[in-house]
Write a protein that binds this DNA or RNA. Sequence first.
DNA 1: CTGTATTTTCAATAAATACTGAAAACACAG
DNA 2: CTGTGTTTTCAGTATTTATTGAAAATACAG
Lengths: 188, 188
Amino acid sequence: MSNEHSPPADWTAARDEFVAQWGSLGTQWGINRTMAQIHALLLISPTPLSTDDVMETLQVSRGNAHSNLKELVGWELVRSVPRKGERREFFEAEKDLWTVFLTVARQRARREIEPALRLLENCATRSEGASSDEGRLFHQQMVQLSEFIGFGLRVSDCVQRLRYPAALQFAMRLFPNSAAPKPPQLSP
Amino acid sequence: MSNEHSPPADWTAARDEFVAQWGSLGTQWGINRTMAQIHALLLISPTPLSTDDVMETLQVSRGNAHSNLKELVGWELVRSVPRKGERREFFEAEKDLWTVFLTVARQRARREIEPALRLLENCATRSEGASSDEGRLFHQQMVQLSEFIGFGLRVSDCVQRLRYPAALQFAMRLFPNSAAPKPPQLSP
DNA sequence: CTGTATTTTCAATAAATACTGAAAACACAG
DNA sequence: CTGTGTTTTCAGTATTTATTGAAAATACAG
């Protein structure tokens, strides 16, 4: 993994801190630590990594590395890339951040928001004719929540169709006082 | 709490399911079950509730109800309202969903995103002069991530200043094919 | 100050979640 | 088929997080 002529620079300390902290950050968002760390690792790796690479770097068991890699693949944030003449699997992360953002939004919408919306609509229907104060407020809030979340879902759908430059332009037009980041432009 | 002339309608079943499911939903987003359930409860309660009301309705201990109520107050999603001639505290949730959305966005930005941004900027600086492939990609990703997240923060800042109707209009202009929800209009 | 209602704290415990490691299943070369 | 390298599964264990309940602190009325 590490080779050649680089000075034993201390950016490696920054790397380790990034991986560790990204893991903690993840837990605050309902993502398990190891999964977030593997994602961090792959985000900054110039080459695809094997399960054993992950095990060694993060000092976790095979089962743990395996299941979290597979889950990342399930989230479409990581893909398995075959290597010529190698039997084992290698994994690489999607590195373009706009794509990562869209993917996370899409997956969370599908897995979590849409089921919630169904719940809310169902609750709204079931409380249709309520006559008490409590019942009417409940119905009202269910309708309001489902409309709010439904609207959010539709906006997200539209955003999915934007390429990064278009999204940027929209944002700039909407929020002139917020400077935009340079467009992502990764090396091949 | 329950009184008067309502038929023993079954919307109460819908209510119970809403509270329970909102709790599970919360856990997927890194919020503990009880806290999410208390929030759900207050969102649909026409009157402020006491700690004992919460304990009884959700069947949780005093300590649990207490600490989660206080944390909700800390998130500014719930406020304590004094009741004339009553010594104990009553709590009510912010019910306007646009306000709730802005509050959650603001709090998460402050508590989680801003610290992450500082980490990323720090990592970007510390890897400034890296010469290896790995080092340069790391630096590049740190810069990219911090710019992306920084931009998100600035957009969020701007959104904070929008009233709901203005936000709606913006969204409609951006995404003409997504029908908008009726503007929230709660009874006094 | 004394007594009572209420809030707050926190050590102990329970529940949920994540992780390990070894065994089983699988894939393929020879 | 046999042997070897790899992936997958999963029961057991460890870790983390949430919850309880009772004691301590607080607030106030009389």
